[in-house]
Simulated scan of single mutants.
Amino acid sequence: MEKTNAEKIKLGIFVIIGLSVFVAAVYFIGNKQNMFGNTVHLSSVFNNVNGLQLGNNVRYSGINVGTVRNIEMINDTVIKVDMVIQGDILKHIKKNAIATISSDGLVGSMLINIIPGSGEAPSVEPGDVIQSFSRTRTEDMLKTLNVTNENAAVLTSDLIKITHEITEGKGTIGTLLYDREMANDLKETMHYLKMTSQGTNESIANLNKLINSLNKKDNVVGVINDTAVANQIKNIVINLQKSSKKIDLVVDNLNTTIDNAKGGKGVINYLSNDPKLVRKVDSTMTNINEASIRLNQNLEALKHNIFFRGYFKKQEKQKASKKQVQ
């Protein structure tokens, strides 16, 4: 049966719509996979790709700039990942950039995240291998968390034992909590410590008062702190030193004189040890005294002599007039 024109038109519209959808899908997928436009290749080396697959996104500073083109396992510890990057983004990626493998959200697919490097560095060139950094895997975090849980369980068990012993009054802490005698002793000890602390504070206060009083000028230390007084004391000490030297010289001379006298030398020894000379000196002094008495008698006689009486009266008048003037 021949198709009518209406059916032919419907078939043509369906084919056109299908081709349009197919072209749009190819363009969308190709654009997403960077199959169209200017692209370059970069690579990085990892020891574990953590489930990374072909076609996963490559991000630079949070922007999708390419896709994973190839994953090649070099050996058991080296895996090379080839990336297709948009050409206009290449100038922004520096040689010190670091590639890491992370997930798109908590449960999203894996992707490569390129982190910009710090400082100044030249831009990468097509075919360069950038540095990589392997983050901690989920399995490793779970293992660490498992070990942490086990340790927490052990600590909890030990803590329960310790608290149980404390509540039973065992150990130092339990004794302190439940032994009244020790609690009283500790209380008395703290009381005595408090009293001792108060006494110490009073002693320190008194000591501070004493130190402050030393700087006042009404005591010995304060006087010494006065510059003028200190200079006077210094001069006195210097004079005392000089006087001490002179006294030492006089004492030395006196000792020499005494030694000479003891040794039979000098006038003192001669006068003290010669009896004849002593008797002569005594007789001489006696004669001098007698002559002095006689001379006084003769002067008294002259005063009463008729020839010299006027002279002596004149002398007495002059003495009297001088006394009146004074």
Rank of each mutant, 00 (worst) to 15 (best):
M110G: 02
A121I: 07
V84L: 11
S134Y: 00
E125H: 06
G108S: 07
A97W: 03
P116Y: 03
D128K: 04
N113G: 08
S118V: 11
N96C: 07
G87K: 13
G119K: 01
R137Y: 06
A97M: 06
P116C: 04
D82L: 09
K91C: 00
K94Y: 07
I114G: 00
M110P: 04
V84E: 11
K95D: 10
G117K: 01
T100K: 15
V81S: 11
I93C: 01
Q131F: 00
G105A: 05
P122V: 02
R137V: 09
S134L: 08
Q86H: 11
M110N: 03
G87F: 02
I85S: 05
R135G: 15
A97D: 06
E125R: 02
I115R: 11
Q131I: 04
D82W: 10
G105S: 09
I115A: 07
P116K: 01
D82F: 10
I85Q: 02
G127D: 05
D88K: 11
F133M: 14
V129A: 07
D128R: 06
D128A: 04
S109Y: 12
I112V: 15
Q86W: 02
I115V: 15
N113D: 15
S103E: 15
G87E: 14
I85D: 02
I130D: 00
F133G: 12
S109P: 14
I112D: 00
L90A: 00
R135N: 15
S109W: 04
A99E: 08
I115D: 08
D88R: 09
M83T: 11
D88G: 08
L90N: 02
K94T: 15
E125I: 01
R135H: 15
V129F: 02
I98Q: 09
S123I: 02
N96T: 12
A121D: 10
S103C: 09
